[in-house]
Amino acid sequence: MSKKLDIIGRNIMIDIIGHIKGVPAKVDTGADSSAIWASNITVNKEGALQFTLFAEGSKYYTGEVIKRKAFRAAAVRSSNGHEQIRYRVEMPVKIAERRLRVGFYLSDRTLNDFPILLGRRLLNKKFLVDVSVKEYRPKPKEKRGIYEEMIKDPYAFHKKYYQNDK
């Protein structure tokens, strides 16, 4: 007999327990793992990973420095084939009234509509995804006129949009 799974939509509001409530997350059945927007990512002299969730300018940014002794590093390949090293931490979250520990890769999600991405490893055997359900609708982005911006100042354009590995 199979266990009844909670049904969630293609995006959902989640709580990062102990840090912030009501953060929009994109549910992505095509992504293997989950990711969360982090900034100021460093490893201190004691070997602890330090980071802040989100970044200045985000309405979810609190400036709180989070430290983790337990973390991992992995080479992560994006859908366009670009590979970079990312740190992975576990965070307690609340999704659809369920409390879970989720492994998140820390990444810069500045240009993404959603600051959190929920992948298959989290969803598997816990949730069914109904793509007709939306809990959160992101504000439409302003049309950037990206070509015009590049022509105007190619150097500034490159600094703004091109993501180099660090």
Score class of each variant (00 low, 15 high):
residue 74 A to G: 13
residue 110 T to S: 15
residue 165 D to E: 11
residue 104 F to E: 00
residue 72 R to A: 09
residue 66 I to G: 02
residue 106 L to D: 05
residue 56 E to S: 15
residue 89 V to P: 00
residue 83 E to M: 12
residue 150 M to I: 12
residue 81 G to L: 06
residue 117 L to P: 04
residue 99 R to N: 11
residue 130 D to W: 12
residue 121 R to K: 15
residue 162 Y to G: 01
residue 56 E to D: 14
residue 19 H to C: 08
residue 72 R to V: 09
residue 56 E to L: 15
residue 165 D to I: 15
residue 84 Q to F: 13
residue 149 E to N: 07
residue 14 I to K: 03
residue 162 Y to M: 09
residue 122 L to T: 05
residue 49 L to G: 04
residue 35 A to G: 01
residue 112 N to L: 13
residue 120 R to M: 13
residue 103 G to T: 11
residue 164 N to K: 10
residue 147 Y to R: 14
residue 76 V to N: 02
residue 90 E to H: 10
residue 76 V to G: 00
residue 143 K to A: 12
residue 81 G to F: 12
residue 132 S to P: 08
residue 109 R to I: 02
residue 89 V to C: 03
residue 73 A to Q: 11
residue 164 N to E: 08
residue 112 N to D: 14
residue 126 K to A: 14
residue 16 I to S: 07
residue 78 S to M: 02
residue 70 A to V: 14
residue 35 A to C: 07
residue 98 R to P: 02
residue 101 R to A: 12
residue 43 V to W: 04
residue 55 A to S: 09
residue 115 P to Q: 06
residue 116 I to T: 01
residue 77 R to N: 06
residue 130 D to Y: 11
residue 84 Q to P: 07
residue 42 T to W: 02
residue 95 I to D: 06
residue 3 K to V: 15
residue 97 E to P: 06
residue 127 F to P: 05
residue 23 V to P: 01
residue 139 K to T: 14
residue 76 V to C: 05
residue 161 Y to D: 03
residue 129 V to Y: 06
residue 6 D to C: 12
residue 149 E to Y: 05
residue 107 S to E: 15
residue 153 D to T: 04
residue 137 R to C: 03
residue 142 E to H: 09
residue 140 P to E: 11
residue 87 Y to G: 06
residue 111 L to E: 09
residue 97 E to G: 08
residue 68 R to N: 08
residue 112 N to K: 10
residue 80 N to H: 04
residue 126 K to R: 15
residue 49 L to E: 03
residue 151 I to V: 13
residue 23 V to F: 08
residue 53 L to C: 02
residue 29 T to Q: 12
residue 11 N to I: 06
residue 122 L to D: 01
residue 73 A to M: 14
residue 65 V to L: 02
residue 93 V to C: 09
residue 138 P to Q: 02
residue 27 V to G: 01
residue 88 R to T: 09
residue 96 A to C: 08
residue 145 G to H: 08
residue 136 Y to V: 05
residue 60 Y to H: 04
residue 149 E to P: 00
residue 106 L to M: 02
residue 6 D to R: 13
residue 102 V to E: 04
residue 141 K to I: 13
residue 35 A to V: 05
residue 161 Y to R: 03
residue 101 R to W: 09
residue 114 F to S: 01
residue 88 R to G: 08
residue 4 K to R: 11
residue 131 V to A: 13
residue 73 A to I: 15
residue 24 P to W: 05
residue 47 G to M: 06
residue 128 L to N: 05
residue 67 K to L: 13
residue 151 I to L: 14
residue 79 S to G: 05
residue 20 I to F: 09
residue 57 G to N: 00
residue 123 L to M: 01
residue 14 I to C: 02
residue 17 I to A: 02
residue 91 M to F: 10
residue 41 I to E: 00
residue 57 G to M: 05
residue 105 Y to V: 07
residue 43 V to H: 01
residue 99 R to I: 15
residue 64 E to P: 01
residue 145 G to A: 04
residue 158 H to R: 10
residue 48 A to C: 12
residue 31 A to Q: 06
residue 152 K to W: 11
residue 138 P to R: 07
residue 4 K to V: 13
residue 123 L to Q: 06
residue 165 D to T: 15
residue 163 Q to Y: 10
residue 103 G to Y: 10
residue 89 V to K: 06
